[in-house]
Amino acid sequence: MASGTETTHDATADAAHGAADAGHAVAEHADGMPQLDFSTFGNQIFWLVLTLGIIYFVLAKIALPRIAAVLAERQGTITSDIAAAENLKQKAVEAEEAYNKALADARAKAGEIVAEAKAEIQAELAVAAAKADAEIAAKATESEAEIAKVRASAVESVKAVAKDTTKEILGAMGSKADAKAVTAAVNARMKG
């Protein structure tokens, strides 16, 4: 040992010692590498196997089945909830359809009523119109007859006046008028 001081620490002393008698790789002392202290291996392996055995037992018998059951149950609940929601949605759709159908029916009925009323009014209107036409026609024929009468009398008057006037004019002109000829002439004129 080159240092040779009393303060030399265990670790260095030990390492140097280990290095000195080469081939003795195992550090017997704690200050080497505790992982390579083979004297503790039996102890570690025993406790490790025990630990893993306990954990395996607890997990396989209690924890994992329980968590699996909880997850399955949750999955089931979610599935049934989704199914219920689907059901409700279906019902809502049906309700909407029914509502739409009722609305369409009501609309159709209203249309029918309107058409009926229209037809009725149309019919009444037609009757009234026919009656009015008939009345108007009757009035018109009556009026025409009157007018015809008036016209006939007017023509007669005109003829008379024309004959008289013609006689007067002829008289004034100094020639005796032949009554028959005048009448014929006036009649011919009136026709033309």
């Binding site: 670790a11 390492a15 280990g18 290095a19 080469a22 790789a25 195992v26 550090a27 200050d31 080497g32 590498m33 390579l36």
Partner: peptide, 8 residues
């Protein structure tokens, strides 16, 4: 490295 440091 560790082996050289501590276990040689």
């Amino acid at each position: 490295a560790l082996l050289l440091m501590y276990a040689s």
